[in-house]
Design a protein around this nucleic acid. Structure first.
Lengths: 342, 342
DNA sequence: CCAAAAATGATTGACGTACATCATTTTTGG
DNA sequence: CCAAAAATGATGTACGTCAATCATTTTTGG
């Protein structure tokens, strides 16, 4: 007697559809050369029995291996380092699932380097690429080329919507900025004052989006606060420190929104000031944690690097297997940290 | 020529250890009847080659199926509903990985019902159980019995540390309480006033822990605030509403910490009050979202139900496969929501 | 109606592991 | 040293799918 509890196999589908195993295989793997009515019968049988392919068996059989590439800036900026660590931590699990990952480092803020890294890849060398895309037409062009070859592309942290990339994995940066502003407004309280925004680069889409969101909410809800023009630190600690010190000297500084990296410079600048401004930063690194503990930083908005790595890999695998992906998969929730919940 | 890139198989291990396939199998699956020195040789070979068992092939071979059980309260309290939905959403993926999940509903706050549900299971009926454990000795006893039979137990949302459960999946509730207090203090600002804490039940460990954490931080850092004695709503909207209204009438109410469920009652009570207190609640449900949008609720601390379900299933599977589990796996980060980042 | 084309069937060998059986070798203890 | 026990080897089948080959049937169009 057939065990109705057991999962149906292609044999069951074949029997139910009254076709041969070979035909079922042809349909399920889209090999072609099958009459329309047969295709329908197989699909009907699949639906009726609730057949789902045994992925383990399938992968075992085709002895598939996934080759994915992460292109990351070499900046030692804590966050990228965390991404690297997360990748390392996943290796064991990934290895067991036949996923091989290459990590390529390109110089930070160097568009040419990124383009070169992309150029050196093709469908021959990789099945999917995840990258923190720079906002440049050459990058888009390379992405389009690779996708044309069948390589799947996932943008990480910063999106490049018009490149046609398969998916974006990262937080909604406008929301991140809005959230930062909401806390900034409430923490500063009534009374007004000046607020400084420091980005890594105004050319970085993620930073720009955060600034947009931040500005919008401050203007909508906290009119008493005065936003100083957004500045750039190029994720350099020295520069950031100088920018913050200057603002403390020349303005009635009540708040600092550190959109990018360089937390060390942030802490430096804050050490001497008389009245400590409210400080909200991005990414939970060693240094920003220290800042939270000491009270120098009031709140940190983090995008969980481990979750991002996992989402990126899962997405690339789904894409490689031709599975449908839901756009929500790539959306990484914002994690908000204060001293109490580090 | 052997492809050195390919993953080693048990055949390679056997060759390297100079023993037969059968012996490798005996060692790897701990079947016994193998000389110490042979065991060592196999382990050395495994280490040398970096052999890792192909889980897909293994599962395929033993045709394994995981049967897991979730025991959840039947309360329609948004959060449990979200857990259910998350379970439903995972079904597709789980099914593809041969994981079958039963969900058992027990009456909320009914210890006997939970005990009965546990009693009805054994190693015959399930491989692992995840439950929101009630704080009761009978529950502990049943958990111990099941674990004795080899059923793996994971506590969900609320821990039961002395039951010997394999793992706890959920947030650190003391931290959750501390975090709530930190925001409460900053949002209320200087000036002092009374703060109301409403739990579902003071017998629920998760709620108690939150209260502990909340109380500690308020006393440490926000001495100007006066904590009213913690109350219980039994997650009932009416009761909660009454409690809040009473506090508004009889005290200088500046803040409400809604530790448990019953958000509807919260919104009800807040509608008429003249001075709106700062409101911090747990769990992002439909209703608490509405509260955030309308401004009635200022901040929500959420434990991501989807992440919890995933973590619980992953843990139970790791346990069933005899893999080592890291205690960190079960720790669910707190998600903090304000109006801007829903 | 017939030949060519299209569709289908039948069969087989991987993939890496689990598990069982039986035969053979080595070790042990009296 | 010999019988019993312990350890090891050898071998085969199964799991569900993929992929390929070859044989056979059905359909098509002139």
């Amino acid at each position: 007697m057939k065990n109705s509890l057991a999962r149906p196999t292609i044999h069951d589908v074949a029997a139910d559809a009254k076709v041969s195993l070979a035909t079922v295989d042809r349909v399920l793997n889209a090999r072609g050369g099958v009459a329309e009515k047969s295709i329908k019968r197989v699909h009907d049988a699949v639906a009726r029995l609730g057949y789902v392919r045994d992925v383990s068996a399938a992968n075992l059989s085709r002895n598939r291996e996934y080759r994915f590439t992460f292109i990351l800036p070499d900046s030692a900026s804590g966050f990228v380092e965390l991404l690297r660590q997360a990748l390392g931590a996943e290796q064991t699990r990934l290895r067991a699932e036949k996923v091989r990952i290459d990590v390529v480092a390109t110089r930070a803020f160097d568009v040419e380097a990124q383009v070169a890294a992309l150029k050196s890849h093709s469908a021959q060398t990789t099945d999917g690429i995840a990258l923190i895309a720079a906002e440049a037409p050459e990058v888009q062009r390379e992405i389009k080329r690779l996708m044309g070859e069948g390589v799947h592309i996932v943008t990480l942290v910063a999106d490049l919507p018009h490149s046609g990339r398969d998916a974006y994995v990262g937080p909604d940066n406008v929301v991140a900025g809005r959230t930062a502003a909401s806390f900034m407004g409430r923490f500063v309280g009534t009374g007004g004052g000046d607020i400084l925004m420091v980005t890594g680069s105004l050319a970085a889409r993620d930073h720009m989006e955060r600034v947009m969101g931040f500005r919008a909410v401050i203007q909508e809800q906290f009119g008493a606060l005065n936003l100083l023009p957004a500045t750039q630190s190029y994720d350099d600690a020295e520069t950031l420190s100088t920018l913050v010190k200057d603002a403390m000297d020349h303005h009635n500084l009540r708040g600092v929104y550190a959109v990018g990296a360089g937390h060390r410079g942030l802490l430096d600048a804050l050490q001497n000031g008389s009245v400590k401004p409210i400080v909200i930063a991005h990414e939970l690194t060693d240094i920003s944690q220290r800042g939270l503990r000491s009270g120098a930083i009031d709140l940190v908005i983090d995008q969980n690097p481990a979750a991002e790595v996992r989402a990126a890999v899962d997405l690339m695998r789904d894409l490689s297997d031709g599975r449908m992906i839901s756009p929500a998969t790539g959306s990484i929730p914002l994690n908000i940290f204060v001293r109490e919940n580090i």
